[in-house]
Amino acid sequence: MDIPQADLDLLNEKAKTELRTFISNETQRQRIQGLTHALTDSCWKKCITSNIKTNQLDKSEAVCMSDCVERFMDVNLAIMNHVQKLTRGGK
């Protein structure tokens, strides 16, 4: 994305602060969306194993996708806790 420096020079302090807030929120939204893409990809491969016959998820597939996300988050948490323990305890 290219914004001419001349345009940026026209921003007053209030607008700059508002833009910083916007960019920081937008960055977080993008990060969440990025992980949603990665998780949908990974969980699709685990959960959608039978031939596709409709345009909808059946009940068990939807439950599997949702469980997949929850367990991924559990794994993340377990890793974080363990690494914290490792770095704190030195073993």
Binding site: L35, T36, H37, L39, T40, I52, T54, N55, E61, S66
Partner: peptide, 15 residues
């Protein structure tokens, strides 16, 4: 294609 989008929505809301 439609099913994948439905899956994306499930993942997004669960997440």
């Amino acid at each position: 294609t439609e099913k994948y989008m439905a899956a994306w929505n499930v993942v997004n809301s669960t997440y």
